[in-house]
Amino acid sequence: MTTLAAVGITTATFLGMEFVAWFMHKFVLHGALWFLHRSHHVRHPHHFERNDFFFLFYGALSMLCIIYGSPTKDWRFWVGIGIAAYGSVYFFVHDVLIHGRLRFWRKSGNAYLRALNMAHKMHHKTTGRDGSQEFGMLWVSPRYFALAWRKPAPKVRGRISSHQ
């Protein structure tokens, strides 16, 4: 496989995972698997949530693709790398930046990251299964960009958001 093909497959997988994440979040997590995802929408004193089990599913899928594609570095390997890359970005953006599950990333003056945080807060405004909006992780509706550009960047050092 050429380097260009490998980069193309990895990039396409990474970008496609945003749609997969949106679809799964909207129709499966807020649907049949709400009993697991609910833990992410309510305040709790625990370090881990039932919702964290979804990491195991995508991690296992990525790992299997990498393992079975490794001998020949075929498309499965690069799909696995794309899923792993998306999962890594998801962890840092969603769990670290937005929810502050690790306390090393502070508030940002970056308009994109602030818009992303606003959209996620809007998603968590509803604590029930129905009525939520903004199900994606990296794609942000233009209205939140407009808000982020109008609202001044935070001056106080601290977490960008507590767990909603």
Rank of each mutant, 00 (worst) to 15 (best):
1 M>E: 08
5 A>E: 09
12 A>Q: 07
13 T>Y: 03
13 T>C: 04
14 F>L: 02
21 A>L: 06
21 A>N: 10
23 F>L: 14
23 F>E: 00
23 F>N: 05
26 K>V: 02
26 K>L: 02
31 G>V: 03
32 A>D: 07
32 A>K: 12
32 A>E: 12
33 L>Q: 12
33 L>W: 15
39 S>F: 08
40 H>E: 13
40 H>R: 04
41 H>I: 07
44 H>Q: 14
44 H>D: 15
45 P>Y: 06
46 H>Q: 15
47 H>E: 09
51 N>R: 05
55 F>E: 00
56 L>A: 15
56 L>F: 09
57 F>K: 03
59 G>A: 13
63 M>H: 01
67 I>K: 00
69 G>I: 01
71 P>M: 05
71 P>N: 05
72 T>W: 10
73 K>I: 06
77 F>Q: 02
81 I>T: 11
82 G>M: 13
85 A>F: 11
87 G>K: 01
87 G>I: 10
89 V>T: 12
91 F>A: 08
93 V>C: 12
95 D>K: 01
99 H>V: 15
101 R>H: 04
104 F>G: 00
105 W>P: 04
107 K>N: 15
109 G>L: 06
113 L>V: 10
115 A>M: 02
117 N>P: 01
117 N>A: 15
118 M>H: 09
119 A>G: 08
124 H>M: 08
126 T>D: 12
131 G>V: 07
133 Q>T: 14
134 E>K: 11
143 R>I: 13
144 Y>A: 03
144 Y>F: 14
147 L>S: 09
150 R>H: 11
152 P>K: 06
153 A>K: 12
157 R>D: 11
158 G>Q: 03
158 G>P: 10
159 R>Y: 09
160 I>Y: 10
162 S>H: 11
